[in-house]
Design a protein around this nucleic acid. Sequence first.
DNA 1: TACTACTTAGTAATCATTACTATGTCAATA
DNA 2: TATTGACATAGTAATGATTACTAAGTAGTA
Lengths: 158, 158
Amino acid sequence: MQRKQHVVSGEEQALRLAGLRVTPQRLAIMRYMMGSKAHPSPEMVYGHLKPDFPGLSPNTVYQTLHSLEEAGLLRRISMEDNVYRYDANVEPHAHLVCRLCGRVDDTNGALEPLLHELLSKGSATTSWDILAMDCCFYGYCNDCRERAQTLQNEEREE
Amino acid sequence: MQRKQHVVSGEEQALRLAGLRVTPQRLAIMRYMMGSKAHPSPEMVYGHLKPDFPGLSPNTVYQTLHSLEEAGLLRRISMEDNVYRYDANVEPHAHLVCRLCGRVDDTNGALEPLLHELLSKGSATTSWDILAMDCCFYGYCNDCRERAQTLQNEEREE
DNA sequence: TACTACTTAGTAATCATTACTATGTCAATA
DNA sequence: TATTGACATAGTAATGATTACTAAGTAGTA
């Protein structure tokens, strides 16, 4: 029992469900965000899409990411260097941030029970209304560990 | 057995121990930071000291906070609004951040065991070199809860 | 007391982000 | 399938926090 119908991508469906208009730019941003584990910054999104959308404006990227965040499709995270990053995984989880290259990874799932406990205990032991929790580990990723050592030694010599 | 000696404040001692020169500006910044539980931003420090130091430059505040951080006397924290805050409590602990007024409090000490566990487990379950952890709870403080409700209702009506 | 390196103040530059506005386009309706 | 009104985009300008640069000043040591 097949019926002729046009194919609706998951991204398109998600946008419509959120009450947002579907445009080529938004679809492309959604697709990139959903497919990336790099927690892209607005600049990274812009740089990635610019070749396919020569007319793309950074402004559009900022606004779109903001709309998607408001719709609950993305989560904005902030880190030590004060540049925003966006995460298509909106479930609570912690991040690993490399202080040299800026890479952002998700932490191992093994931490999740602890994070849940922390959030519930945090909410329970304060009189504030808690809406969200953010947890970041800072250090050096495997690619930067060696370079970090070298830099530290140089500093010591000065 | 009293001896004549000039009085050395704790702040002065801390600066000398860290190998930093003691200047009036630095002493004042130290004193303010050590005495505050508000996790002041550079702008707050500047605003607080400007009356006493009319010639003070924002630049000096930025540089001094940075030096004190490098010396391990302060800890720089970053939050959702991408404005730096500094904390004279360098022991690991989490923060409560109000999304309306920007107030930053320390969390209840009851969370500390969990935070330690999180840090050690986080370090153990990744191959990265972990140097630090930051944990923030976002929500509304007691003073802003009501206003937050009002704002949300207004949004819904639009 | 004199010297040297570190600090400061002041200005200019940078960077990410937001504001503003005219043009363009999606999608609901007739 | 045309029309139309609201939303989206692009482009430029503005903002705000932070950093860079430089000349003048000062702390601490010999």
